[in-house]
Amino acid sequence: MDVKNDTQKNQYELKTPEGMAVAVYRPVGTHAIMFTHTEVPEALEGQGIGSKLVKAALEDVKAQGKMVIPMCPFVAGYISQHHEYLDLVDPVQRGALNIS
């Protein structure tokens, strides 16, 4: 299962046998990506699909040299548990989202 960035739909996608898992985003200028929503097929919830999706999305954003604005609670939670991605989030936003 590979994560793809569908730039036409502004979402990272992970196709599964049960349906599409998505991490929806909005570009913010040329320097940042705002993640707004993550969705995983109900039958796959709690099986790590969302984490795999978000990890791949964050790696792609990092490779692009952009910042992340994690408005989606799942993305914010993932970053708070995986500190290697904290540098993608502006320090002011880290405080506002209680990401430490």
Rank of each mutant, 00 (worst) to 15 (best):
G50Q: 01
L86A: 05
P91A: 02
Y12Q: 12
Q47A: 04
L53P: 08
T38H: 00
H37L: 07
T7D: 08
E18A: 14
K55T: 11
V75K: 14
R26L: 09
G50P: 05
V54M: 07
A96N: 08
M1F: 10
M71D: 05
L58V: 00
Y25T: 01
F35Y: 13
Q11G: 06
H83G: 13
L88M: 07
V92W: 04
V89G: 01
V28I: 09
V24S: 06
K55D: 15
A56N: 06
D87K: 01
L14R: 09
P91R: 06
K55L: 14
L14S: 10
K4Q: 03
G48T: 00
I69G: 09
P27E: 15
E39V: 12
V28F: 07
I33P: 08
E42T: 14
K4L: 09
E18P: 09
Y85H: 00
H83D: 09
F74R: 07
Q93K: 14
V61C: 07
V24R: 11
A57Y: 02
M20S: 13
Q11P: 10
V54L: 05
M67W: 07
D6W: 11
G50M: 03
L58Q: 04
N10Q: 15
M67Q: 15
K52T: 12
P17C: 00
I49E: 14
G19R: 01
M34S: 14
I99S: 02
E59V: 10
E84K: 00
H31P: 03
G95L: 05
K52S: 11
P70F: 04
G65M: 13
K62T: 09
M71E: 08
T30S: 12
K62L: 11
R94I: 06
K62I: 12
M20R: 08
E39F: 09
R94M: 01
M71F: 13
G65L: 09
V24Y: 06
R26C: 03
E18G: 09
D6F: 14
T38M: 11
T7H: 13
I33S: 08
L97S: 05
K55H: 15
D6C: 13
M20F: 05
V89P: 04
P17S: 10
F35R: 10
F74E: 01
T30W: 04
M1Y: 02
Y85K: 02
Q81D: 11
C72P: 00
N5C: 10
D6T: 12
L44H: 08
L14M: 15
Y12S: 11
K4T: 04
I79K: 00
G19E: 02
N98Y: 06
M1C: 03
D2P: 03
H82C: 07
L14W: 04
P73M: 10
D87T: 07
E84R: 01
T36M: 08
Q11T: 04
A23Y: 04
M67K: 14
P17G: 05
I99M: 01
V92E: 13
E84M: 03
G95H: 05
Q11Y: 02
Y78C: 09
Y25K: 05
V92A: 01
Q8K: 14
H82T: 03
N10A: 02
I99W: 02
V92D: 03
A63D: 13
C72S: 03
A43D: 15
V54I: 12
G29R: 02
S80H: 07
T7F: 11
K55P: 03
D90H: 15
I99R: 05
V75P: 04
S80A: 10
Y78P: 14
E18D: 15
M34D: 11
G77M: 01
A63Q: 11
F74W: 00
G48D: 02
